[in-house]
Design a binder for these strands. Sequence first.
DNA 1: TCCCAGGCTCTCT
DNA 2: AGAGAGCATGGG
Length: 272
Amino acid sequence: MVEYEVLQNGIRINNPPNFDLAQTLDCGQAFRWSQNDGVWSGVAGGRYIELYSDENGIVLKNTTESDFTTFWADYFDLERDYGKIISEISTDKTLKTAASYGSGIRILHQEPYEALCSFIISQNNNIPRIKGIIERLCRKCGEKKGEHFAFPSAEKVAALSEQELRDIGCGFRARYVLDAAKKVADGTIDLECLKKCDTKTALDTLMSIKGVGPKVADCTMLFGLNRIEAFPQDVWIKRAMKNLFPNGLPECAVPYAGIVQQYIFYYARNNL
DNA sequence: TCCCAGGCTCTCT
DNA sequence: AGAGAGCATGGG
Protein backbone atom coordinates (compact mmCIF):
# COMPACT_ATOMS: atom_id res chain seq x y z
CA MET A 1 0.00 0.00 0.00
CA VAL A 2 1.24 3.46 -0.87
CA GLU A 3 1.76 6.11 1.74
CA TYR A 4 -0.93 8.72 2.01
CA GLU A 5 -1.90 11.59 4.23
CA VAL A 6 -5.36 12.71 5.26
CA LEU A 7 -5.72 16.41 4.58
CA GLN A 8 -8.44 18.76 5.75
CA ASN A 9 -10.21 18.55 2.41
CA GLY A 10 -8.91 15.38 0.84
CA ILE A 11 -6.11 12.88 0.55
CA ARG A 12 -2.56 13.25 -0.58
CA ILE A 13 -0.67 10.27 -1.94
CA ASN A 14 2.91 10.92 -0.90
CA ASN A 15 5.28 10.91 -3.86
CA PRO A 16 3.73 7.92 -5.61
CA PRO A 17 6.20 6.24 -7.93
CA ASN A 18 5.29 5.98 -11.61
CA PHE A 19 2.14 8.06 -11.34
CA ASP A 20 1.79 11.05 -13.61
CA LEU A 21 -1.72 12.46 -13.85
CA ALA A 22 -1.42 13.76 -17.38
CA GLN A 23 0.11 10.57 -18.73
CA THR A 24 -2.36 8.34 -16.94
CA LEU A 25 -5.55 10.29 -17.57
CA ASP A 26 -4.85 11.52 -21.08
CA CYS A 27 -3.20 8.52 -22.71
CA GLY A 28 -6.41 7.31 -24.35
CA GLN A 29 -7.41 4.57 -21.92
CA ALA A 30 -10.31 6.51 -20.38
CA PHE A 31 -12.61 9.13 -21.84
CA ARG A 32 -14.14 10.99 -18.91
CA TRP A 33 -11.18 13.00 -17.65
CA SER A 34 -10.33 16.60 -18.43
CA GLN A 35 -7.82 19.12 -17.22
CA ASN A 36 -8.19 22.78 -16.29
CA ASP A 37 -5.44 24.94 -14.82
CA GLY A 38 -3.51 21.88 -13.75
CA VAL A 39 -6.51 20.31 -12.03
CA TRP A 40 -7.86 17.05 -13.42
CA SER A 41 -11.50 16.19 -12.95
CA GLY A 42 -13.68 13.27 -13.86
CA VAL A 43 -16.16 10.68 -12.74
CA ALA A 44 -15.37 7.05 -12.00
CA GLY A 45 -17.33 4.49 -10.07
CA GLY A 46 -20.10 7.06 -9.70
CA ARG A 47 -17.76 9.41 -7.87
CA TYR A 48 -16.77 12.86 -9.06
CA ILE A 49 -13.25 13.83 -8.14
CA GLU A 50 -10.65 16.53 -8.75
CA LEU A 51 -6.92 15.86 -8.55
CA TYR A 52 -3.71 17.80 -8.91
CA SER A 53 -0.07 17.19 -8.22
CA ASP A 54 2.14 19.30 -5.96
CA GLU A 55 5.72 18.99 -4.75
CA ASN A 56 4.77 16.30 -2.24
CA GLY A 57 2.63 14.05 -4.35
CA ILE A 58 -0.85 13.83 -5.77
CA VAL A 59 -3.85 15.37 -4.04
CA LEU A 60 -7.37 13.96 -4.32
CA LYS A 61 -9.68 16.83 -3.43
CA ASN A 62 -12.81 16.41 -1.33
CA THR A 63 -12.26 12.71 -0.89
CA THR A 64 -12.74 10.74 2.29
CA GLU A 65 -10.21 8.26 3.57
CA SER A 66 -12.68 5.42 3.15
CA ASP A 67 -13.41 6.40 -0.46
CA PHE A 68 -9.68 6.45 -1.08
CA THR A 69 -8.88 3.11 0.48
CA THR A 70 -11.94 1.28 -0.82
CA PHE A 71 -12.13 2.74 -4.29
CA TRP A 72 -9.52 5.17 -5.62
CA ALA A 73 -6.46 3.22 -4.52
CA ASP A 74 -7.69 0.31 -6.61
CA TYR A 75 -8.88 2.50 -9.48
CA PHE A 76 -5.42 3.98 -9.87
CA ASP A 77 -3.79 0.56 -9.57
CA LEU A 78 -1.68 1.76 -6.66
CA GLU A 79 -0.80 -1.76 -5.52
CA ARG A 80 1.13 -2.57 -8.66
CA ASP A 81 4.89 -2.11 -8.72
CA TYR A 82 5.43 -0.41 -12.07
CA GLY A 83 9.08 0.26 -11.29
CA LYS A 84 9.73 -3.46 -11.14
CA ILE A 85 7.94 -4.04 -14.43
CA ILE A 86 9.83 -1.23 -16.14
CA SER A 87 13.14 -2.56 -14.92
CA GLU A 88 12.29 -6.05 -16.18
CA ILE A 89 11.29 -4.93 -19.66
CA SER A 90 14.22 -2.52 -19.88
CA THR A 91 16.50 -5.41 -20.83
CA ASP A 92 15.22 -4.54 -24.30
CA LYS A 93 16.64 -1.22 -25.44
CA THR A 94 13.61 -0.06 -27.41
CA LEU A 95 11.20 -0.99 -24.64
CA LYS A 96 13.41 0.90 -22.22
CA THR A 97 13.06 4.02 -24.34
CA ALA A 98 9.28 3.70 -24.63
CA ALA A 99 8.79 2.86 -20.95
CA SER A 100 10.98 5.75 -19.83
CA TYR A 101 8.93 8.09 -21.97
CA GLY A 102 5.64 6.98 -20.39
CA SER A 103 6.90 5.87 -16.99
CA GLY A 104 4.09 7.74 -15.23
CA ILE A 105 1.30 5.79 -16.91
CA ARG A 106 -0.80 3.51 -14.72
CA ILE A 107 -3.54 1.23 -16.03
CA LEU A 108 -6.83 2.39 -14.54
CA HIS A 109 -9.27 -0.16 -13.16
CA GLN A 110 -12.37 1.02 -14.95
CA GLU A 111 -15.76 -0.57 -14.51
CA PRO A 112 -16.17 -3.46 -16.93
CA TYR A 113 -19.32 -2.23 -18.63
CA GLU A 114 -18.01 1.32 -18.93
CA ALA A 115 -14.89 0.05 -20.68
CA LEU A 116 -16.86 -2.22 -23.00
CA CYS A 117 -19.35 0.46 -23.98
CA SER A 118 -16.70 3.17 -24.33
CA PHE A 119 -14.49 1.14 -26.63
CA ILE A 120 -17.43 0.10 -28.80
CA ILE A 121 -18.07 3.81 -29.28
CA SER A 122 -14.37 4.36 -29.99
CA GLN A 123 -14.29 2.33 -33.20
CA ASN A 124 -13.53 4.34 -36.33
CA ASN A 125 -13.86 7.48 -34.25
CA ASN A 126 -11.61 10.19 -32.84
CA ILE A 127 -10.98 10.92 -29.20
CA PRO A 128 -12.69 14.33 -28.88
CA ARG A 129 -15.81 12.92 -30.49
CA ILE A 130 -15.71 9.74 -28.41
CA LYS A 131 -15.62 11.89 -25.28
CA GLY A 132 -18.57 13.94 -26.51
CA ILE A 133 -20.74 10.92 -27.23
CA ILE A 134 -19.93 9.36 -23.85
CA GLU A 135 -20.67 12.60 -22.03
CA ARG A 136 -24.06 12.87 -23.75
CA LEU A 137 -24.80 9.23 -22.91
CA CYS A 138 -24.03 9.88 -19.24
CA ARG A 139 -26.23 12.97 -19.20
CA LYS A 140 -29.02 11.11 -20.87
CA CYS A 141 -29.28 8.14 -18.55
CA GLY A 142 -26.47 8.15 -16.00
CA GLU A 143 -27.26 8.67 -12.35
CA LYS A 144 -26.90 12.29 -11.31
CA LYS A 145 -24.17 12.93 -8.76
CA GLY A 146 -24.37 16.58 -7.80
CA GLU A 147 -23.60 18.48 -10.96
CA HIS A 148 -22.08 15.43 -12.62
CA PHE A 149 -23.29 12.17 -14.04
CA ALA A 150 -22.17 8.61 -13.45
CA PHE A 151 -21.63 6.28 -16.36
CA PRO A 152 -24.99 4.59 -16.90
CA SER A 153 -25.62 0.97 -16.05
CA ALA A 154 -26.13 -1.56 -18.83
CA GLU A 155 -29.77 -1.74 -17.77
CA LYS A 156 -30.28 1.99 -18.33
CA VAL A 157 -28.65 1.87 -21.75
CA ALA A 158 -30.55 -1.27 -22.72
CA ALA A 159 -33.77 0.63 -22.09
CA LEU A 160 -32.90 3.23 -24.75
CA SER A 161 -33.95 2.90 -28.37
CA GLU A 162 -31.50 2.68 -31.23
CA GLN A 163 -32.76 6.06 -32.42
CA GLU A 164 -32.02 7.67 -29.05
CA LEU A 165 -28.46 6.41 -29.30
CA ARG A 166 -28.18 7.80 -32.81
CA ASP A 167 -29.48 11.12 -31.55
CA ILE A 168 -26.54 11.50 -29.19
CA GLY A 169 -24.12 10.80 -32.04
CA CYS A 170 -23.43 7.08 -31.90
CA GLY A 171 -24.07 6.68 -35.61
CA PHE A 172 -23.74 3.14 -36.94
CA ARG A 173 -22.44 2.07 -33.51
CA ALA A 174 -25.90 2.55 -31.98
CA ARG A 175 -26.97 -1.04 -32.61
CA TYR A 176 -23.64 -2.32 -31.27
CA VAL A 177 -24.00 -0.28 -28.06
CA LEU A 178 -27.53 -1.57 -27.68
CA ASP A 179 -26.57 -5.20 -28.27
CA ALA A 180 -23.82 -4.99 -25.66
CA ALA A 181 -26.11 -3.32 -23.12
CA LYS A 182 -28.82 -5.94 -23.63
CA LYS A 183 -26.46 -8.90 -23.35
CA VAL A 184 -24.97 -7.52 -20.14
CA ALA A 185 -28.29 -6.41 -18.66
CA ASP A 186 -30.10 -9.70 -19.25
CA GLY A 187 -27.22 -11.80 -17.98
CA THR A 188 -26.29 -13.36 -21.32
CA ILE A 189 -22.82 -12.03 -20.57
CA ASP A 190 -21.49 -11.81 -17.03
CA LEU A 191 -18.57 -9.39 -17.15
CA GLU A 192 -17.45 -10.21 -13.61
CA CYS A 193 -17.02 -13.85 -14.64
CA LEU A 194 -14.83 -12.76 -17.53
CA LYS A 195 -12.30 -11.39 -15.06
CA LYS A 196 -11.43 -14.90 -13.99
CA CYS A 197 -12.07 -17.30 -16.87
CA ASP A 198 -9.40 -18.29 -19.38
CA THR A 199 -8.28 -15.73 -21.92
CA LYS A 200 -9.79 -17.32 -25.01
CA THR A 201 -13.21 -17.80 -23.41
CA ALA A 202 -13.24 -14.17 -22.27
CA LEU A 203 -12.31 -12.89 -25.74
CA ASP A 204 -14.78 -15.15 -27.54
CA THR A 205 -17.57 -14.13 -25.19
CA LEU A 206 -16.89 -10.44 -25.73
CA MET A 207 -16.72 -10.91 -29.49
CA SER A 208 -20.16 -12.52 -29.48
CA ILE A 209 -21.45 -8.95 -29.11
CA LYS A 210 -22.27 -7.22 -32.40
CA GLY A 211 -19.61 -4.68 -33.25
CA VAL A 212 -17.02 -6.14 -30.89
CA GLY A 213 -13.94 -7.46 -32.68
CA PRO A 214 -10.42 -8.24 -31.47
CA LYS A 215 -9.44 -4.64 -30.71
CA VAL A 216 -12.51 -3.67 -28.67
CA ALA A 217 -12.43 -7.04 -26.88
CA ASP A 218 -8.78 -6.57 -25.93
CA CYS A 219 -9.39 -3.02 -24.70
CA THR A 220 -12.26 -4.28 -22.56
CA MET A 221 -9.98 -7.01 -21.20
CA LEU A 222 -7.17 -4.62 -20.37
CA PHE A 223 -9.03 -1.54 -19.17
CA GLY A 224 -12.20 -3.05 -17.74
CA LEU A 225 -11.30 -6.55 -16.61
CA ASN A 226 -7.81 -5.87 -15.27
CA ARG A 227 -6.27 -8.46 -17.57
CA ILE A 228 -2.81 -7.25 -18.48
CA GLU A 229 -2.13 -10.17 -20.79
CA ALA A 230 -4.34 -8.41 -23.37
CA PHE A 231 -2.49 -6.49 -26.07
CA PRO A 232 -4.93 -4.31 -28.03
CA GLN A 233 -3.73 -3.71 -31.58
CA ASP A 234 -4.98 -0.53 -33.18
CA VAL A 235 -3.53 1.33 -36.15
CA TRP A 236 -0.95 3.08 -33.96
CA ILE A 237 0.28 -0.12 -32.36
CA LYS A 238 0.43 -1.93 -35.68
CA ARG A 239 2.49 0.89 -37.16
CA ALA A 240 4.74 1.06 -34.10
CA MET A 241 5.26 -2.71 -34.00
CA LYS A 242 6.28 -2.75 -37.65
CA ASN A 243 8.83 -0.01 -37.03
CA LEU A 244 10.11 -0.88 -33.57
CA PHE A 245 9.57 -4.63 -33.21
CA PRO A 246 9.49 -6.27 -36.65
CA ASN A 247 10.16 -9.65 -34.97
CA GLY A 248 7.31 -9.32 -32.50
CA LEU A 249 7.09 -8.33 -28.86
CA PRO A 250 10.25 -9.18 -26.87
CA GLU A 251 9.89 -12.17 -24.52
CA CYS A 252 10.44 -10.06 -21.41
CA ALA A 253 7.32 -8.03 -22.22
CA VAL A 254 4.87 -10.90 -22.64
CA PRO A 255 3.80 -11.18 -18.96
CA TYR A 256 3.01 -7.44 -18.97
CA ALA A 257 1.76 -7.14 -22.53
CA GLY A 258 -1.07 -4.74 -21.76
CA ILE A 259 1.06 -2.33 -19.79
CA VAL A 260 3.76 -2.46 -22.42
CA GLN A 261 1.10 -1.77 -25.03
CA GLN A 262 0.32 1.51 -23.29
CA TYR A 263 4.00 2.51 -23.22
CA ILE A 264 4.34 1.77 -26.91
CA PHE A 265 1.04 3.48 -27.75
CA TYR A 266 1.92 6.62 -25.82
CA TYR A 267 5.44 6.69 -27.23
CA ALA A 268 4.27 6.07 -30.80
CA ARG A 269 1.55 8.72 -30.74
CA ASN A 270 3.99 11.36 -29.57
CA ASN A 271 7.16 10.35 -31.38
CA LEU A 272 6.40 8.43 -34.58
C1' DT B 1 -14.18 22.69 -46.70
C1' DC B 2 -13.29 17.98 -46.70
C1' DC B 3 -10.65 14.44 -44.54
C1' DC B 4 -10.48 11.19 -41.17
C1' DA B 5 -10.88 8.79 -36.77
C1' DG B 6 -7.73 3.55 -30.63
C1' DG B 7 -12.72 -1.05 -36.27
C1' DC B 8 -16.12 -4.12 -37.57
C1' DT B 9 -19.34 -6.31 -40.72
C1' DC B 10 -20.46 -7.87 -44.98
C1' DT B 11 -19.40 -9.26 -49.51
C1' DC B 12 -16.71 -10.91 -53.07
C1' DT B 13 -12.81 -13.46 -54.74
C1' DA C 1 -8.63 -16.74 -45.63
C1' DG C 2 -7.67 -12.49 -47.50
C1' DA C 3 -8.91 -7.94 -49.46
C1' DG C 4 -11.88 -3.96 -49.80
C1' DA C 5 -15.96 -1.07 -49.57
C1' DG C 6 -19.22 1.00 -46.51
C1' DC C 7 -20.57 2.74 -42.33
C1' DA C 8 -22.65 7.89 -39.36
C1' DT C 9 -20.91 11.76 -37.47
C1' DG C 10 -18.67 16.03 -36.39
C1' DG C 11 -13.92 17.74 -34.72
C1' DG C 12 -9.99 19.95 -36.68
